[in-house]
Design a protein around this nucleic acid. Sequence first.
DNA 1: TATGAATGAGAGTTCATTCAT
DNA 2: AATGAATGAACTCTCATTCAT
Lengths: 200, 200, 200, 200
Amino acid sequence: MVRHKEKDKQGIISDTRQKLLTAATQEVARYGFERANINQISASAGYAKGTIYNYFPTKRALMLALIDEFTKNHFEFIADKVIQVNDPISRLKNFFVAGFEWIEENLQQGRVMVATLNGPDVEFKEHLYAAYQPMFELVGIEIIGLGISQGLFRGMEPGPTAGMVMTIYLGFGSTVDDRGHPNVAPEKIADLVLHGLIKV
Amino acid sequence: MVRHKEKDKQGIISDTRQKLLTAATQEVARYGFERANINQISASAGYAKGTIYNYFPTKRALMLALIDEFTKNHFEFIADKVIQVNDPISRLKNFFVAGFEWIEENLQQGRVMVATLNGPDVEFKEHLYAAYQPMFELVGIEIIGLGISQGLFRGMEPGPTAGMVMTIYLGFGSTVDDRGHPNVAPEKIADLVLHGLIKV
Amino acid sequence: MVRHKEKDKQGIISDTRQKLLTAATQEVARYGFERANINQISASAGYAKGTIYNYFPTKRALMLALIDEFTKNHFEFIADKVIQVNDPISRLKNFFVAGFEWIEENLQQGRVMVATLNGPDVEFKEHLYAAYQPMFELVGIEIIGLGISQGLFRGMEPGPTAGMVMTIYLGFGSTVDDRGHPNVAPEKIADLVLHGLIKV
Amino acid sequence: MVRHKEKDKQGIISDTRQKLLTAATQEVARYGFERANINQISASAGYAKGTIYNYFPTKRALMLALIDEFTKNHFEFIADKVIQVNDPISRLKNFFVAGFEWIEENLQQGRVMVATLNGPDVEFKEHLYAAYQPMFELVGIEIIGLGISQGLFRGMEPGPTAGMVMTIYLGFGSTVDDRGHPNVAPEKIADLVLHGLIKV
DNA sequence: TATGAATGAGAGTTCATTCAT
DNA sequence: AATGAATGAACTCTCATTCAT
């Protein structure tokens, strides 16, 4: 009973925190971190302005928490789809397709990611890079490394090549329109990258 | 004599404006538009805080002027290098090499460009896209279109393909480090793109 | 209990707002709207400078609220005294006597009224005229109209004549000295106006 | 010759000064003293911003000069019309008619006068009262005093009564619309005042 | 835990005034 | 006498943060 109650209570707490993070994502996506308004975030989450400080000590801490949340989400979504297939070429295609699918379904997070990655705030940028480390490793080991070891891809260094692939993904990720569609179809992007990687 | 004097006077005016733009670029590159401080910009340009308002009506107008300046600069630098050669493959290589050379030599402007392109401010973003229209056309007509017409590149639509090339350039442009070097050598980026474009 | 508590809470809110309005009236009366200082108003009301913006979105909105407050106050004070008697002549006398009594007791508000009525700010002026509409009607219907219908006053149109009476009141209102006394005794003003209105 | 030249030179100087005063009157009439813009005044007079300081040491000095100009103008216009007739009743009528004629023909000056008279700036107000002293005397001696001495007006003290007449004039003067018309016809105002003053 | 009144540092902007030309 | 670039004090308004309830 007590345990159940505690769970409930924790559930409520998490719920509040989650609502605040969601509201913060909307606000930051639309206005950027600097112009995002703490009061507005609290209000659109259904709370008063003070409440946010029961969960996050500062506005910057809220932003960092928000980054943690969507990077985890983003990585898990993509990794799941990549690992579902075994050959490197399908994995690369899945990486791009799943990557843009995630952006389409998580447009606000996508915008925050892109803006943070390219914005002037060094602390946020480093936090984001660190949080995306698993994704770099996924691409480097499970896609590029695998393709090279199977003799499918040209002999390149996996690390830098993974960096290239990620950079291209993120580069096109920053071109998505209001519906979440990049300026080029994910399949075409995958195609271009494959043509660049595959042995002839 | 009179003419010389006039030129001098205009020269002084332009000089102040130019100093302010340069200082603004430094500040915006380092702190982003929102945190860039008007007083600090004036001061580091060697003027009092009010002076900036003799040249730009608002902080936003200063930013737009700054965008106009570096896009023109950027385009002219690249176009010059691209046009120096005639075959599409060399032109594509020159595009990337010159592109990253410009970023390396104009690191602050590069940062502002990247942050603006990926930031939340719609007005700035649209202004920047409009200002880069000539660059899109350069790539679409003078590189991709030419390569297709010569039967060197796979049959793709020049417009979207130019968009891809630009996106890849800008994507890697956003990875440059403090010395202005992208995470992958420009030649390698050009190489990857060429492998993606060239007929086998 | 709850009700009492709510009342208390609301009371505190109103209290702050009221203190700010009072301080603003002092400041505007002394320096005029343009030179009235928002920080000074907050400070003399006993609050920090930002506090005022929890109650009024802009300095102009504060001014409009202040106008609303004193016009209501002014009208109620005069209407009460006018209605206490029934014959038009006494009512006219009471109008002037109560009118100047109010100004004497509310010197700051009186100054703001007069300056606003004669100042260059069209929005404020129109707001003030609109707010004084009930007073115009009081004079037109309950004093002039009544006097005409009883055959006491010369046959004049009530509306314009009310305008004249109000204009004379406000004209003399603008002559009050530091103690709130007009340059002519209210009774004499009433006397002059009566001589102008009464049938011979 | 020299004298003629000097006269010309002085004429040019005066011309500039006059243009500046005229432009200042327009600006102050429209925006009030505080919001009147020195640069705008210079510009609309056809000069650069610095020029104004060759004629007036400060913005306040400009305002005082402007007051001096229109009060003199105002007094001379009215006095001329009043003195043209000899009986006090005609003089009173002429006073109001000429008074409003001047306002109609000098709308901007009229607005400045009214705003200054009712505004918060004590220095300006006192300057204006002092400048209007001749007008008070004109009314007190040449109209009211004359009427009393001829047994036409009720036995009142000329000074305060002149104050009343002036107050009524200025009170209605503050009601003029965009074309310079008061809310009541000047003849009616004169009529009301006469009914108040004349022996029955 | 939730609230929201109060805070005050900080920012952009205005503009009267100066002064070298 | 006329100019206009430069100045910097002053002002309104924003908003992250605190804290008593």
